[in-house]
């Protein structure tokens, strides 16, 4: 069935096949790039909205991997991305912390834990709910096996421990942000006001959107660039 091989037709067929295939993929990449980016952004926005109380505007800090959520002039809280090594690989969380240093809620961004065991860290309601309003000043942030107050997932102590560690890391980032804000003092307040002005201007360039939440996410994408 197949043609007889000689150098010319081998080079020609392989070359043409590769050329056509790369052209197809380049086209597909161009078409799907926007939806892929939109899906990723939507996922992040949903995670932030899930871990913090209602806010109007969120600004990303690339250096510290956190989002500062504000509602007008008031600071709503920080949504901090925190990645640790779990049982099966990296475990990435979004941890929402309100200005009074209480964890508002947490959300799993990505994980590679064992299905049926550690993977429950993103589905088990009992485990997830204990992070809502978790106050590290009152409760000890480590699993019960280590003498803390965190209920571990059955048979998944390592995952639960990693989860607690990720929250602890997020709190450390929060302390750093809070510390900086304190040192900056009065000057800091001015800077925050200035930032908001810039964000507001960027928002004005966008088309007017009825949904205020969507408008804010647009703004946030804008400031990411």
């Amino acid at each position: 069935m197949a043609a007889k091989s000689n150098l010319t037709n081998m080079v020609l067929v392989l070359g043409v096949t590769c050329l056509v295939c790369s052209a197809v993929l380049a086209g597909a990449y161009a078409i799907t790039k926007d939806p892929i980016d939109a899906a990723a952004a939507q996922k992040t926005n949903r995670a932030i909205a899930q871990v913090l109380p209602h806010f109007a505007d969120a600004e990303y800090n690339e250096e510290g991997h956190y989002y500062t959520a504000t509602d007008g002039d008031a600071l709503v809280g920080y949504a901090i991305e925190s990645t640790v090594v779990g049982f099966g690989g990296n475990l990435s969380l979004m941890v929402g912390i309100t200005p009074d240093r209480v964890v508002y809620n947490t959300s799993v961004l990505s994980h590679s834990e064992t299905p049926g065991l550690g993977a429950k860290c993103s589905t088990d309601a009992k485990f997830m709910d204990q992070w809502k309003g978790f106050n590290p000043a009152v409760k000890k942030l480590s699993v019960k096996k280590d003498g803390g107050d965190v209920d571990a997932i059955t048979a998944s102590t390592i995952t639960s421990r990693a989860y607690a560690q990720a929250v602890a890391n997020a709190l450390a980032v929060f302390d750093k942000i809070a510390g900086q804000a304190k040192i900056a003092g009065q000057a800091g307040n001015d800077a925050v006001a200035g930032n908001e002005e810039i964000a507001g201007q960027a928002g004005n360039d966008e088309a007017v959107m009825p949904d205020s939440d969507r408008a804010s996410s647009e703004k946030e994408e804008h400031s990411n660039e």
């Binding site: 069935m1 197949a2 043609a3 007889k4 091989s5 037709n9 081998m10 067929v13 392989l14 096949t17």
Partner: peptide, 12 residues
């Protein structure tokens, strides 16, 4: 398949 030379059919 009819135009693919035998020796390079797997890579193609």
């Amino acid at each position: 398949a009819p135009v693919v030379p035998d020796k390079v059919h797997i890579p193609v």
